[in-house]
Nucleic acid binder design. Structure first.
Length: 551
RNA sequence: UGCCUGAUAGUAUAAUGGUAGUACGACGGUUUUUGGUACCGUUUGUCUUGGUUCGAAUCCAGGUCGGGCAACCA
């Protein structure tokens, strides 16, 4: 078969570890989202990496929610995350929560206090920030740093007991205030938050910081390869410091570059703004780079996985061209989507030599990419058809392989026609196109001997049904909205959604939710989640590649 | 002007001291009852300056440029 793909740097590390017998050759990864937003395509990269590694090397992957901040987290997000991971086609070995470890984490903290490696600090956030110094100047210790172990134990227990209001005290690790790594300058381990947690309710009023929960959670679960994104590189020494001082399982963290896609934004904070401020319909708006948005848009799990495979994994900052994502979905849908006809911008075509009142039933295959066409459907044909306005030109340029007066084209799955004349309204707009057809040119039994260069799609006027069709374009007008001057929302593409009513062929009224359809020559479409039998709504997943660029 | 990171076609990603390759994009062609698909071809690259070596994208040193780090966020 094909050559084996070369390994990415993390796979190399894993293979080296396996051959060195590290952890007995065991591979255990985890995907650790915070349930404070919906997953996006960047998370898909991480999911595919973590689950992919385990699958490839016979290991396991945990789904662990890093739910250490109750004020931003919610079970709605937990549910959406689980749905998205499953939709992508992955199964986790264990569903876990950092909050499962709150008792353990508290014991770890007490342990460090007793070792003299943590202390309770009464400073305000501002004071702590000042005392941390700057990247070029060392921090300065305050009077709380030298509290006795006994006092710290008592104070920390009092914090847990709810004796202090939010923000009154924090527990800090006593590491090194002069470290060139800001994360080592006595990082905060616990803070007071009298907030209800989505899982532990009111049990706790102190919550561990990410830095005091994430690494230990990995260690508790005996994760062999803790994979995260580049911004956590400076956290690694602290992660290892805690593991060392607490004598935990030595999980090792490896960092890769997060995915950036052009013409969109990829931060939960920004996506949340788009949702909250009404720039999109919700987290699953088909213009959003969220997994749920892609799903509603008509992307398939296989196409997203293929995309994640093709973009690769490395350590350098990257900006992936959205055309690669589009390539992946077209590649998948080309092989699976059933072909149907829909006219998005209609103009009436009258076949003057076709008997008035006559109707016939033609046949079209479901998918020409599949041997045998994968079945087919009946298509009603009559004297009056809707065709695409752009498929006719009064004054056609050279190499225009469509309809014009005196120009011939094939009607897909039907006859060859020749343009004869046009009818216009008072403003000069074309309201009807008249043509004649060649009865011997019927698809499948063509004895006319005529060859035409172009084929156009159509829908019979008396048989046509209507549907709302939503045409999506990129959400932003610039490649990197986050990197422009001012608010990123100023760069939203005003034409990112165009809603039209189109004519569809009868068969499309029984379209299956979740299935991709190719509207011939127009693109791939899928039923929107709000589509009903009374009012069909189709989302355009992606256009077909257009090789005809007119000047 | 501290620490950590990184730098290969337009965009990504290989080459692990021995012919710089692949994909997407772009461009051109063949086929085609979708200007789609498929197939074929063309185009463009090792940040820079030195050093080591028979030989450097790869190793070493300096520089340049990019990204990250000073949340009681993750």
């Amino acid at each position: 078969m094909s050559e084996e793909r070369s390994l990415n740097f993390i796979e190399e590390i894993v293979e080296d570890d396996i051959s060195a017998g590290k952890h007995g050759g065991r591979v255990h990864t985890r995907f650790p989202p915070e349930p404070n937003g919906y997953l996006h395509i960047g998370h898909a990269k991480s999911i595919c990496l973590n689950f992919g590694l385990a699958k490839k090397y016979g290991g396991k992957t945990n789904l662990r929610f890093d739910d250490t901040n109750p004020v931003t987290e919610d079970t709605e997000y937990v549910e959406s995350i689980k749905e998205d991971v499953r939709w992508l086609g992955f199964e986790w070995a264990n569903e876990l929560y950092a909050s499962d470890y709150f008792d353990l984490l508290y014991a770890f903290a007490l342990n460090l206090v007793r070792q003299g490696l943590a202390y309770v600090d009464d400073s305000t956030p501002e004071e702590i920030a000042t005392q941390k110094g700057t990247p070029t100047e060392p921090g300065t210790p305050n009077q709380y740093r030298s509290r006795s172990i006994e006092e710290n134990v008592q104070l920390f227990e009092d914090m847990k007991a709810g004796k202090y209001p939010d923000g009154a005290k924090v527990l800090r690790a006593k590491v090194d205030l002069a470290s060139p790594n800001m994360h080592m300058r006595d990082p905060i381990m616990y803070r007071i938050k009298h907030a209800k947690h989505h899982r532990t309710g009111d049990k706790w009023c102190i919550y561990p910081m990410y830095d005091f929960a994430h690494g230990q959670s990995d260690a508790i679960e005996e994760i062999t390869h803790s994979i995260c994104t580049l911004e956590f590189v400076p956290h690694r020494p602290l992660y290892e410091w805690f593991i060392d001082k607490l004598e935990l399982f030595p999980s090792r963290q490896y960092e890769f570059a997060r995915l950036n896609l052009n013409y969109t934004v990829m931060s939960k904070r920004k996506l949340l703004q788009l949702v909250n401020e009404g720039f999109v319909e919700g987290w699953d708006d088909p213009r959003m780079p969220t997994i749920s948005g892609l799903r509603r848009r008509g992307y398939t799990p296989a196409s997203v996985r293929e995309f994640c495979e093709r973009i690769g994994v490395a350590k350098r900052e990257n900006m992936i061209d959205v055309s690669l994502l589009e390539f992946c979905i077209r590649e998948d849908l080309n092989k699976t989507a059933w072909r149907r006809m829909a006219v998005l911008d209609p103009v009436k075509l009258v076949i003057t030599n076709y008997p008035e009142g006559q109707t016939e039933t033609l046949h079209g295959e479901n998918n020409p990419e599949v041997e045998g066409g994968e079945g087919g459907r009946d298509i009603p044909f009559s004297r009056e058809l809707w065709i695409e306005r752009e498929d006719f030109m009064e004054v056609p340029p050279k190499k225009f392989f469509r309809l014009g007066v005196g120009l011939s084209v094939r009607l897909k799955n039907a006859y060859i026609i020749t343009g004869e004349s046009v009818v216009k309204d008072a403003e000069g707009n074309i309201t009807e196109i008249h043509c004649t057809y060649i009865p011997e040119s019927k698809s499948g039994s063509d004895t006319s001997g005529i060859n035409v260069k172009g084929t156009i799609h159509w829908v019979s006027v008396p048989h046509a049904r209507t549907a709302e069709i939503r045409l999506y374009d990129r959400l932003f007008r610039v490649e990197d909205p986050s990197n422009e001057d001012g608010d990123f929302k100023e760069y939203i593409n005003p034409d990112s959604l165009k809603i039209i009513t189109g004519f569809i062929e009868e068969d499309l009224t029984t379209a299956i939710p979740g299935k991709g359809y190719q509207f011939i020559r127009k693109g791939y479409f899928t039923l929107d989640k709000y589509s009903t039998a009374d009012k069909l709504v189709f989302n355009r997943t992606v256009t077909l590649k257009d090789g005809w660029v007119k000047k």
